[in-house]
């Protein structure tokens, strides 16, 4: 039995159309909201919109398009797009900020704010929690018989996909902290989450090169190609996240420096 073989026939029969619909709805909602802001004269950067729409498109593509390569490599390509790259692009579009600005004052807006500022949401986006949820899920998937089981049960397969996308988004959200939530975590926490997450991902990728997930029978060449896709793809996404965090730091230090210079000049 090779997961990924009837991967696309079984589990994805339900999950794929749902994921594509969700991605299209997300992108459409975002574009409508940004348009509403611009029509009333507010600025909303096109780059943020482009990032979010690209993220949604990649999410849809990950489920709608058959990835190249043998089963495990294709599975990794999908994992990389849906669970890592698409989430970063979605998060970089500041969807929560846009939602809060586009909604008129009222019940809906208050509800979104209440959730965003709630204690559980605050804990969920703590970098340390997000990294455990994301990487813990990944280790469970590849180091327990979960992957083999997901191949047998369509509902489990769909749940795994949902977790990968949700946890990936949570991780990107927690590390980047571009949207307003209950608490802002400092740079060391976020850098620590990047380091821990990246290391857990790299170790898992390298270990998959030699040892397949329990209960699966992928060809060695497939396993080796897939684990390298995971390793180097993970590097690329890690780099992207680090650049986002570094750019925030650079902008914040620049503002602080200008304030100091202005204060010194005033004296």
């Amino acid at each position: 039995m090779t997961p990924g073989h009837d991967h696309h026939a079984g589990g994805l029969a339900v999950a794929a159309p749902a994921a594509v619909c969700l991605a299209v709805l997300l992108a459409a909602g975002y574009v409508v909201a940004a348009h509403r802001l611009r029509r009333r004269g507010d600025a909303w950067p096109w780059a943020w919109q482009a990032s979010f729409v690209a993220g949604a498109a990649l999410l849809a593509a990950a489920f709608a398009v058959r990835m190249p390569g043998q089963p495990f490599t294709a599975h990794m390509g999908q994992h990389l797009l849906a669970g890592m790259l698409a989430p970063v692009l979605l998060v970089a579009g500041r969807p929560l900020t846009l939602t809060l600005r586009a909604l008129r004052p009222g019940r809906a807006r208050r509800a979104v704010l209440a959730v965003a500022h709630s204690r559980p949401a605050g804990w969920l986006v703590a970098p340390a929690v997000a990294v455990v949820l994301d990487m813990g899920g990944l280790w469970l998937l590849y180091r327990t018989p979960l992957l083999a089981a997901a191949d047998q049960h369509a509902w489990l397969h769909a749940a795994v996909h949902l977790h990968v996308v949700a946890a990936g988004t949570l991780y990107a959200f927690a590390v980047c902290q571009l949207d307003p939530v209950r608490r802002r975590w400092s740079l060391p926490w976020r850098a620590g989450a990047l380091l821990a997450g990246g290391a857990a991902h790299a170790v898992l990728a390298k270990s998959l090169y030699g040892t397949p997930p329990p209960g699966t029978s992928f060809a060695p060449a497939d396993l080796q190609a897939g684990s390298q896709v995971m390793y180097y793809g993970g590097d690329a996404v890690e780099l992207l996240l680090a650049v986002i965090v570094a750019a925030q730091w650079y902008a914040a230090t620049g503002r602080a420096h200008r304030r100091r210079v202005a204060a010194a000049a005033a004296h």
């Binding site: 380091l195 857990a200 170790v203 590097d235 890690e238 570094a246 730091w249």
Partner: peptide
């Protein structure tokens, strides 16, 4: 394997941190 994963990630982050500190 663990030390390799940690160091490899630290190198990536170090590259970005080094450039932004330099800038």
């Amino acid at each position: 394997l663990l030390s390799d994963g940690l160091l490899h990630t630290a190198e990536l982050l170090g590259l970005v941190a080094g450039f932004v500190l330099w800038a």
